[in-house]
Design a binder for these strands. Structure first.
Lengths: 251, 251
DNA sequence: TGGTTAATGTGGTTTTATGTAGATATACAA
DNA sequence: TTGTATATCTACATAAAACCACATTAACCA
């Protein structure tokens, strides 16, 4: 599939738009195939369909980040869909940096009138200019590997807000002490957004259970919900229950 | 449909209004088709119908909306390539919001070790995590139509920097008073980045020549270089020469 | 090897853009 | 004012494109 996507994008890049029939002829495939490819590009927000053809959106000329980030991992996609299901149209939320949260952002493209605060470039890119959303991006130097901003400015920026949900990813979940991250600044960030949200939602696939990481984010009691893909082992289940964290399993 | 819409807007942009019959002849379709297209444009509040024709609302004042449709992409691409050619590997620069600057960003993906400051999501998107670049994105609420951040925070953010080049787009170039924008906050931004850069480079295609817009950015002398696709008319040429602005034509 | 899955092709149906023709409305001049 | 030319509106016709369900092929994996 992504071979076709590449080819279609190349053709579109030549002049910004192209007709379906022409592309089909150029690439030696059926118009139907082109349509399907265009459909995924449209779903990613990279192109706009018109009758008879498609044109690149004036921004997002190259799908560098979004594409690199959201390789199709079915598990994370399911978690993302489920987490997005918890968010109502018109709601407000914070989304932090992370591969799982990128899937949440992708799933949230179905929603409308969201108020989104984020320090993640891919998240902003997925939701800005989409369905009447308002997107607030925290600035700063962008980390090259994930497009996240973590400076003091960014921290101060997010503290201005008060939102319904904070959706965050973690590096590990431990039965003793709760949720962990690798990076101190990420942890600071997570704390800030938990403090600014009514409900803190952790998204984590089952591989995170029992995994240790150096920085503890906060007391388990600071979190409200965990969205994951498989029931956690008993000891972690106990910890979650004791902290009053409800678990939502991805369908 | 939207293909037709673009063509009609293109014709209307030439002089601000046109007759239905003329447009039908020009585009090789029935007058009825033009009427239907005009109807949707009217419904979007972009044009006003008059008996026998239609005229663009706010022509010259608000090209931003029409600009989304009238994408002169090959031209902008050439300008972008040329502007990028002025930047050395390892250099530092500011890039503001705009369709032309997005093409500059695109062309700059060939370079490496750049230090890029921007308030534009698409620009950050194009250059972050690429060839060892460092990207600093100014935060704030992202405008839905172009992904730009223009708040006070963003303004303060960019003032921290000192870079080699500032690459900016404009809404119009006038022989009397120089360079214009339609938005006050954009103009403030442009002034800030001009003050923070050694060299101010304007990228503008030839359609901007003689076009008026409400906000003057700065004295012509504040700019150093103009990258465009066709030689400017004599009066503008004189203005540029007098202000010491060198003109670079895109190949 | 067989079985599962992803990508593409095929045929038939639905939708869209445009054209055509006739009825109605509008501008303008005598 | 009335008459006439032209523009607009409405309804219907048609060809092309989009959509959908199913068949086929290719690739991959146990």
């Amino acid at each position: 599939m992504s071979q076709r996507v590449r080819e279609v994008l190349d053709v579109l890049n030549e002049s910004g738009s192209a007709r379906i029939q022409d592309m089909a002829a150029r690439l030696g495939v059926t118009a139907e195939t082109i349509r399907r490819t265009i459909a995924v590009l449209e779903h990613q927000g990279l192109v706009t369909k018109v009758h008879g053809g498609a044109s690149l959106k004036n921004w997002g000329l190259e799908p560098s980040f979004a594409q690199r980030f959201v390789q199709n991992q079915p598990t994370k996609r399911r978690i993302g869909d489920t987490a997005a299901g918890l968010i109502a149209d018109g709601s407000s939320l914070f989304l932090d940096v992370g591969s799982t949260t990128a899937y949440v952002a992708q799933a949230l493209r179905q929603k409308h009138d969201l108020l989104v605060v984020t320090n993640s470039l891919p998240v902003a890119q997925a939701l800005a200019g989409q369905n009447n959303n308002r997107v607030f991006m925290a600035g700063g130097e962008l980390r090259s590997h994930d497009g996240g901003a973590f400076g003091a400015d960014a921290l101060a920026f997010v503290r201005q807000f008060r939102v319904r949900h904070a959706i965050l990813s973690v590096a590990g979940v431990d039965a003793q002490s709760g949720f962990f991250l690798q990076d101190l600044r990420e942890a600071e960030f997570s704390r800030a957004i938990i403090a600014c949200a009514d409900e803190a939602i952790v998204v984590a696939d089952a591989s995170k259970f029992g995994r240790v990481a150096p920085i503890r984010i906060a007391e388990p009691g600071a979190f409200h919900r965990l969205v994951t893909d498989a029931p956690p082992p008993p000891d972690i289940s106990d910890m979650l229950a004791e902290a009053g964290i409800s678990v939502t399993l991805a369908g």
